[in-house]
């Protein structure tokens, strides 16, 4: 076999807000009862992060858990650990109704970083991105231009964005164009 490749092949832009491909990322969609003890513990075992509450993003380093819906979390972990992770989930959740699938290759993960990153996203997503309304630690599922996206902030100037693999180029070009167009000056800089 050959090494897997990400949809964006490491694309990145220069500029005060930079858009970049974050490369291969392990992603497991896990659906089930989020309050179920064994589900919480297997998620914690795999990522080190606690089960996220409503609209939360919980991280331990690069690994993390995103609240996707009342019965779904997205597990973020190293790409190479997915098969092992799925096996562990199957074992831990045996006999409990759930669904776990590898979606690592179905998605692209982009990063938008810089002093007006928040405004770059607000140009494209029909949501309230004011720092009071959307701080780091939350996850938002909405539209970016004309495609579905999930986004969260790793710090005050950095967004990570997940979209479907097939539209990764569109998402990248859209974000790059919005970053190149410069700041709006609406949100306090660096928030």
């Amino acid at each position: 076999m050959s090494d897997p490749i990400s949809a964006l092949l490491g694309r990145e832009t220069q500029g005060s807000v930079q858009v970049s491909d974050t490369g291969l990322r392990g992603m497991i969609t896990l659906r089930g009862d989020l309050s179920y003890g064994k589900m919480k513990s297997i998620c914690k075992d795999l990522t080190g992060a606690a089960m996220p509450g409503l609209r939360e993003a919980q991280f331990k380093g690069e690994n993390g858990l995103l609240w996707m819906s009342p019965d779904e979390v997205l597990i973020l972990l190293p790409y190479a650990d997915v098969a092992d992770g799925l096996a562990k989930i199957a074992k831990a959740m045996k006999g409990q109704h759930h669904l776990a699938v590898n979606v690592s290759d179905a998605r692209a993960v982009l990063q938008v970083q810089g002093p007006f990153a928040r405004e770059v996203i607000a140009k494209l997503a029909p949501v309230d991105l004011h720092p009071d309304a959307f701080p780091p630690g939350q996850v938002l599922r909405t539209r970016l231009g004309q495609i579905a996206a999930a986004l969260w902030m790793t710090d005050a100037q950095t967004f990570q964005i997940i979209c479907f693999r097939s539209v990764a180029d569109y998402a990248f070009d859209l974000l790059a164009a919005s970053a190149a167009a410069g700041p709006v000056g609406h949100f306090p800089r660096g928030t």
């Binding site: 949809a7 231009g145 004309q146 097939s166 539209v167 180029d169 859209l174 164009a177």
Partner: peptide, 15 residues
Amino acid sequence: GVARDELFQPIRKTP
């Protein structure tokens, strides 16, 4: 807005 030319609409691409 930005939805023109290449960005007029998303084009889905296979691997």
